[in-house]
Write a protein that binds this DNA or RNA. Structure first.
Lengths: 222, 222
DNA sequence: CACATTTTTTAGACTTATCTAAATAATATT
DNA sequence: AATATTATTTAGATAAGTCTAAAAAATGTG
């Protein structure tokens, strides 16, 4: 079995790895985990010994097959609990993440399978992220970052990459909820910002590239 | 805030205290927590410093008002999660305890209030134990131990004091489920055992004093 | 390419919660 | 009451996970 701390490392390594590929470096890991780099070095050496990651001195870490499986298991639990908190208990979008951070470490296969059944095998969490299945298979959704689009293109908001409450409240305030139809009316070269038209009422707004790179968009008819 | 370990100490001290009164001694606490007495001494000194218990050297501990409030909060969480596991997810009586041991340490007042609402403010857990309310008030049920009765008396099985799966499976196998009507046909002086008649089909069985002292009985018309 | 800067690792320290072994206090027995 | 037994506490050790400070390696710059 793994400790809570080990599980957090694996989860974060997985998340950082899904952006670009290759080895994750110590300082990125440290800042995401809110720890000092020296602590991270210690732990990844331990995880390497347990064959959960591959670690190369001064280069970084990546997950082993075993480590990835574990990480996906934790992500599965996290996202199923998020669905439960949102759908069953009525928590808002922006509050589920922090509580799920605790619940994801509860250890019981039967609990998770029963929860999955009770929730009717949901495919995505309240932020639009896909939920890995029992054996760790992840249905890669057909979606791209808003920042990969340019003027004139159009799509449906299908997820956010940053699940901090602050960011989610920012979105909510601007009616950027899951399922919203978004049309990019203009890309402003000078500051890399985007002018959008959202929903059906011709509402417009401008978002920074920062924000755009954290939003996922899928085809208009998904 | 308290650690998971501290919470377990407080919970167990509360449970032992509700049997007889006064100070709880180190070795009882140690055996219930499955730790060595020396570890217990260390921890209760720490809890005393935090003003969660009162500790007198060589005499034992009891909860302070603050400690009792915390303990009741943990018991509330434990029992609400048990109801959820049983009623919502369909776990059997004997499996809910171990998972609730983990869930009881999840920290979120809003989560517990929403769970309580979702479950429709249950009054007892699946073992018949009362659930403390938000402010730690516990509705003391009108029930006594089976071992306090003698031949001829009658009542309804309303709870078990030992929630180990082993004990609960023992009960299930003999149809001793919550709500069963029990009549004590005879008390056997020589080995302190009880002859019972249970349910409506004149089924009979004999249980040891051990078992009898772990069963709660309430009036026939509760 | 040599030096400066940044990143990473190592070494040593600290905290929490536990343990074992020894010392001390309380209780039981003769 | 003196001694034996049992319970409790103290002292010192250990493991996990973190930290700070110093050393070493990698990277960037003139």
């Amino acid at each position: 079995m793994s400790t809570q701390s080990e599980e957090n490392y694996l989860k974060v390594i997985y998340q950082l790895a899904s952006k670009d590929v290759g080895y994750i470096n110590t300082s990125d890991l440290a800042s995401k985990l809110d720890l000092k780099p020296s602590s991270v070095t210690d732990m990844i050496q331990k995880l390497d010994q347990k064959r959960l990651v591959q670690y190369k001195k001064y280069q970084g870490v990546k997950l082993s097959a075993k480590g990835e499986k574990l990480a996906l298991g934790i992500i599965r639990k996290h996202r199923l609990w998020e669905v439960f908190l949102h759908e069953t208990l009525g928590f808002t979008w922006d509050k589920v993440h922090d509580i799920a951070e605790q619940l994801e470490h509860i250890n019981s296969t039967e609990l998770i399978e029963r929860l999955d059944l009770f929730l009717n095998h949901p495919k995505t969490d309240p932020h639009g992220d896909p939920i890995p299945d029992k054996v760790g298979r992840l249905n890669q959704l057909n979606r791209i970052r808003l920042s990969q689009l340019r003027g004139g293109e159009k799509g449906v908001l299908s997820g956010a990459n940053d699940s901090s409450s602050e960011f989610l409240r920012y979105l909510k305030k601007r009616d950027l909820t899951l399922g919203t139809i978004i049309k990019i009316t203009h890309f402003n070269e000078f500051d890399q910002s985007y002018d959008l038209e959202i929903g059906t009422e011709n509402k417009t707004l401008t978002i920074s590239n920062q924000v755009a790179s954290n939003l996922f968009i899928s085809e208009s008819k998904p």
